[in-house]
Design a protein around this nucleic acid. Structure first.
Lengths: 396, 396
DNA sequence: AGACTTCTTCCACTCTCAGGACAAAGAGCG
DNA sequence: CGCTCTTTGTCCTGAGAGTGGAAGAAGTCT
């Protein structure tokens, strides 16, 4: 199939495309209820969208008491690629234009191997998905990388954990390889967009999305839009000081949140605890696997290991301290916790909640839900699809 | 004179009004260079604005090489009132439609005397300004209060330092008394708007404005607009924990920034230092005035008093710690320090800068100016005028 | 079967707006 | 002073956007 290259010609068409993306197949009449255009105008714009091929007819809608309406929907052959490059693994998924995941692959992969190796992997995963018949090509791709990005150009800038990526033209390179438009963003922002599109944050305009993985980051959504900051490093909360004169951090300071709690820090703590004989559970796991990860701590904690529970609680408290400050500052309507360590689940969440509700003022916390992300590993890839669809469904 | 009640009829007119407000008298041709409208369309809209009386003809412009253009400007009889209610004093100023201050009064006043007493004072100050012939009435007023505000209604919500104000319909009451439209906001947000309109922040879209007065607050500007948070308490950074297990704070927690550094805390520290004989300079002042304020500390520090310099430095360091966290999180393009304690000047600024540049990541601080506000006590009242003019110069 | 709803199409009419033509008013130059 | 060139303001026409009414098509419900 030839790929779509059409773009909406005006704001009305863009609006309609987004309604169809978020609401699925819809009748003209239903669309009319949502957009405040005259019937005639609406018909004209829908017809033009049909001409472009972005939208296709989709049979008859159920009657709402009178004549049945003709449904329209986004072209079911449209395909977006969502790519979430993490520090230690990569997710690649194919979605349709309604951002439903049609196929999803996950592979361990060290981002430090550099852009060339990573792209090779990503492209081969994309090819594999294509080979299953899910897609003949892609109409757009949204990529997340674990570091700050100069958003308009889609280029990582000074990413601490991605040696070799600084200044690499990710957007341009992948656009060439995939032959479709590409947008690049921070992985945390992608997760925030994903949870906003299909997860817990569907109804709030201002919220924070804290991702605790190998590192810690925070997606900031203001008025429904991701806020990226002046240089694209907004939300980089891993290096906020959580413990005065605390542990040394890779960044050169001491007491950074990330040094005290993150996937990496937790793994270190777990090994230490195992070696000191504080946790027989962990010691066994260390023996068998040769290494420990956050998942081991989660499993041990689930089995009732006191040391692991303590580790989680202390990490949650540290994280809660930092989040409490952010809540006072930003006064969000929701805080979402996500990322690799969500396996730690409600023990972690409870510790964070306790600390935030204790430290922030009642006016800010009064009606503030703090919840786990709903989408898990799919948040990032859905966010990627959302990112590129927002771009493509805007007037050129 | 009868007060103006006209409002722009569409977005084009609103745009033109704001250009005239920010750029002063302007020729039609110059306006045309800025708004991307055809000459005919522009002429129509300008004519309509002239009809409403919001805009008046203003003679001929200088030639730009051809026929001279007819200037237009905002009606010079328009008057806005800017009111900045602080914890211990109130500022009232009259501006024209270009937000130039025509008259300014300042009086000490304890906000805890309650809304009725404070409004009496404010209204009498406004009357005094009117009596000087600066204004025959007001076309709008912008009010700042030292606490969180439910912005759409203009009502303070649970303000910690304003007993008796909770839920008081400030906007409605003052609108009645003044007989003109009124908008109410947090005093810190007003300062942020003032510095953005006429101060150091004219050219940045995303910045933070930290006001250190009796308390500490932070104005947040995202994309040129003040961000107020879900419940209107965004920027309330005074109760972020700066010192673990630090001093007890009025809010019930320990170690809040405000408990360690603010106008109030500094005064307490100064009295203590004087009584312990650590600072002869302060002791003398305490003797003569019976009390000490931040201004005394500033004066003593300027005279070289080591204890005072230390107090300021330590306070700056605490503040810098918190700001460093906010900078990492928000990645602003500028940080402005203002409020009553700016008298402490560059000693304070240096301490804050040192701490921020040390603790935040280079990507966020790389090109981050941290500067003192330019407008001093006029920032708030200019911000007030700006607030109401933004409202009135928007389509109804 | 008939009355009522809902949806779609068609059409006439209004409004907006851009851009060209032209006149008015100035600058610069010889 | 006269000429040319530039800039500004005004007028006009035509294209396109958009509204709302009317009528027909396709349902439901009694």
């Amino acid at each position: 199939m030839r790929r779509m290259t059409a773009r909406p010609a005006n704001a009305h068409q863009a609006r309609l495309l987004k309604l169809l993306r978020d609401g699925g197949p819809n009748s003209r009449a239903q669309l009319g209820d949502q957009v405040d255009l005259s019937r005639s105008k609406l018909a004209v714009e829908v017809d033009r969208l049909l001409e472009t091929g972005l939208v296709v007819a989709d049979g008859l809608a159920a009657s709402r008491g009178g004549r049945r309406s003709h449904n329209v929907r986004l072209n079911p052959d449209l395909r977006f690629l969502g790519v979430d490059i993490g520090a230690t693994s990569v997710d690649v998924a194919v979605t349709n234009a309604e951002l439903e995941i049609l196929g999803h692959l996950n592979q361990p992969l060290d981002v430090r191997e550099g852009p060339v190796a990573v792209f090779e992997q990503v492209l081969s995963m994309a090819a594999k998905l294509r080979a299953t018949g899910l897609a003949e090509g892609f109409d757009g791709a949204g990529i997340g990388v674990p570091g700050p990005v100069r958003f308009p150009e889609g280029v990582p800038v000074a990413p601490p954990i991605m040696p070799g990526w600084d200044g690499f033209p990710v957007r341009e390179a992948l656009s060439q390889e995939l032959g479709c438009p590409v947008m690049v963003d921070n992985d945390v922002n992608l997760m925030a967009m994903g949870e906003q599109h299909a997860g817990v944050a569907r109804t709030v305009a201002d919220y924070l999305c804290v991702k605790i993985g190998t590192g810690i980051g925070c997606g900031i959504v203001v008025g429904g839009h991701v806020y990226r900051g002046t240089t694209g490093s907004a939300g980089d909360i891993g290096h906020i000081q959580a413990v005065p004169d605390g542990r040394p951090c890779a960044c050169g300071n001491r007491g950074c949140l990330e040094a005290h709690f993150s996937g990496a820090a937790l793994a270190r703590d777990a090994v230490e605890a195992a070696q000191q004989g504080l946790s027989p559970e962990l010691a066994v796991r260390l023996e068998t696997h040769g290494a420990l990860t956050a998942a081991d701590v989660a499993a041990a904690a689930a089995a009732g290991d006191a040391t692991c529970l303590d580790l989680i609680r202390e990490g949650g408290t540290r994280t809660g301290q930092v989040i409490a400050g952010l809540v006072s500052f930003f006064n969000p309507g929701l805080v979402v916790i996500g990322g690799g360590v969500t396996g730690l689940g409600h023990t972690l969440l409870a510790a964070i909640r306790t600390q935030v509700y204790r430290q922030s003022l009642p006016l800010a916390t009064g009606n503030l839900p703090i919840v786990l992300g709903e989408l898990g590993p799919t948040a990032g890839v859905i966010g990627g699809a959302r990112l590129i669809s927002d771009h493509l469904f805007s007037p050129a």
